[in-house]
Nucleic acid binder design. Structure first.
Lengths: 154, 154
DNA sequence: ATAAACTATTTGACCTGTCAAATTGTTTCA
DNA sequence: TGAAACAATTTGACAGGTCAAATAGTTTAT
């Protein structure tokens, strides 16, 4: 139907960033579909729930640090999750600006209900990866992430 | 300032997907900043330019396949890039639905101008990664990506 | 005590990503 | 041929992401 020219020099996917972007896009789609079908949650909601399961009573700013998410987005999302009955917020005694957030029983229960599916998914994703390779993989991810903080000055 | 409870069981970042999402978010921010400062391009524009440098005269659908991008988004983006003078489109002789897209000289020139910075960036990102580790890394990325196509049926 | 500096959160504006339906052109096949 | 099936692209609606400015509360330093 069409004839592409042969790759003249560097292909887009020889950029790590291209590969990772494509991977991420595919993972997002899979995660979104799974969460929606199993629990009617969005990926962001799932992430917040897991983060709060781990860092109990965290504030918006603390969550933002952990999940690397925009505070504006977070503010709105938290609001909607409180309205949906997934999160409860109560004001810090000493600093009235900060709200400590916690999961409601409803959210805890939803989380417990989906967790098996999400863990099964993780295992499927890594099914063919040996422990040694996985270790290398994480190490490389860490290195790339560290380098991605750099903002060039040249 | 606050006391987190100790991680009770599984931390969010023990999910590969969390780690990758965070990495991606950081890479996006870096790439966006670099492209904006060096050439006033968005990440998506850069990606399209590179894709068209590689697959000359590709159509929207072909590009969508390569970069794994939504056709709707692509349609709008292409339109705006044509308006900006970055892309030229001409209709296929045999099928009037398809437009073959190509870079304008302006886009070629912009691309050449930024390429050194983008390549330098890639090298910085991978500076501390040995070739062997990188190979393992890419293999794992491929495996995860393959597994991410799966849509569970349970 | 109080103005200035700082911090947490919210809000507004705007761009990107995703899904589904609509539109337009092409092919198949009775 | 011409209706049905198909394919490429566009459009609409809406969630997610990013940036910057606004708001509200707290701390610091005089």
């Amino acid at each position: 139907m069409n004839t592409h020219d042969a790759p003249s020099y560097r292909t887009p996917s020889s950029f790590v960033t291209f590969r990772l972007a494509r991977l991420q896009s595919s993972l997002n789609a899979q995660g979104t579909a799974l969460l929606k079908s199993k629990a009617g949650l969005s990926l962001v909601e799932w992430r917040l729930i897991q983060t709060l399961r781990m860092f109990k009573n965290a504030s918006l700013t603390e969550i933002a640090d952990h999940v690397q998410m925009d505070k504006g987005q977070l503010s709105r999302k938290i609001k909607s999750m409180v309205e949906k009955g997934l999160l409860s917020a109560n004001t810090d005694k000493h600093d009235q600006r900060v709200q400590h957030l916690a999961l409601t029983p409803k959210a805890e229960q939803l989380s417990a209900q989906i967790m098996p599916f999400m863990e099964a998914r993780q295992q499927r994703l890594l099914a063919d990866v040996s422990p040694e390779d996985l270790e290398v993989f994480y190490r490389v991810v860490d290195k790339i992430e560290a380098a991605s903080k750099y903002r060039g000055v040249e």
